[in-house]
């Protein structure tokens, strides 16, 4: 029965996931406030010292993005766990790789929105002046792609487990450590805080994203089957 193209199936899944978020407003009412709250807490922890906060902006920004990303990934797979939906997804006969791309795509879109909002957040709360827009945007996009791909892979890996809520962050955060390092360096270079070649870190992030996209395309099916 399922004879849609790869792209159509992926678009169908992504549109469904984004519609779910628009209707449930979990991202708007919980994830974004949580991420902004993190920025505020960082401010309290560092005594509201603007100089320190501006110097550490890139690291604090990406820590906030990663923690919020874990919530987004958890939510993306929680909706597939209710009321036999995962069985229905298996029975639908869509290519697993297209489901992977669709789910990762929806997470990617949410992450981009989150990154923009947190960018405004660091400008407002830390007084950071955003510069180096080309590198800033490019590294944010490839970092979001890497987080989405790895998150989708580990999301489906833990989806069927009873302890998924605590296991997902434990597995995913170490895996995303290279993104934290690379994105922090690239953003630091864009903001002029660190004297490194930001574009080489962009390349690093792009390679990470490519590896996890490739892994996801091949491994998502078997993992969905076993979840």
């Amino acid at each position: 029965m399922a004879d849609g193209t790869f792209v159509n199936d992926a678009a169908l899944v992504a549109a469904k996931d984004l519609r779910l978020e628009l209707r449930s407003r979990v991202a708007v009412s919980q994830v974004v406030p949580f991420a902004v709250l993190l920025l505020v807490i960082f401010g309290f922890a560092l005594d509201g010292d603007q100089t320190t906060l501006q110097r550490l902006t890139s690291g604090l920004y990406w820590v906030a993005v990663l923690f919020a990303a874990v919530l987004i990934v958890q939510r993306a797979f929680a909706v597939e766990s209710d009321d036999g939906v995962r069985d229905a997804l298996r029975l639908a006969g869509m290519r697993p790789a297209s489901v992977f791309v669709g789910k990762a795509g929806a997470i990617f879109v949410q992450l981009i929105v989150l990154e923009v909002l947190l960018g405004v957040g660091v400008a407002v709360f830390f007084g950071t002046t955003l510069t180096g827009w080309g590198l800033l945007i490019a590294s944010a996009v490839v970092a979001a792609a890497g987080i989405s791909a790895a998150g989708t892979l580990y999301g489906v890996l833990t989806a069927g487990l009873r302890v998924k809520e605590s296991l997902l962050p434990m597995l995913l955060l170490p895996v995303l450590a290279p993104v934290l390092i690379g994105a922090t360096r690239a953003m630091g270079a864009a903001l002029g805080d660190v004297a490194v070649d930001g574009w080489s870190w962009f390349n690093f992030l792009a390679i990470f994203a490519l590896i996890y996209v490739a892994l996801g395309l091949f491994a998502f099916g078997p993992l969905l089957e076993e979840s």
């Binding site: 169908l12 519609r19 209707r23 009321d83 069985d87 229905a88």
Partner: peptide, 26 residues
């Protein structure tokens, strides 16, 4: 297959659910 669970997304409308699963199965 219709088991004890209905395989529906709780936060989508009836129309969204029926259309999504219809399109997902071709």
């Amino acid at each position: 297959y219709l088991g004890h669970d209905t395989g529906l997304y709780a936060d989508l409308t009836v129309r969204d659910n029926v259309r999504f699963w219809a399109r997902a199965t071709g």
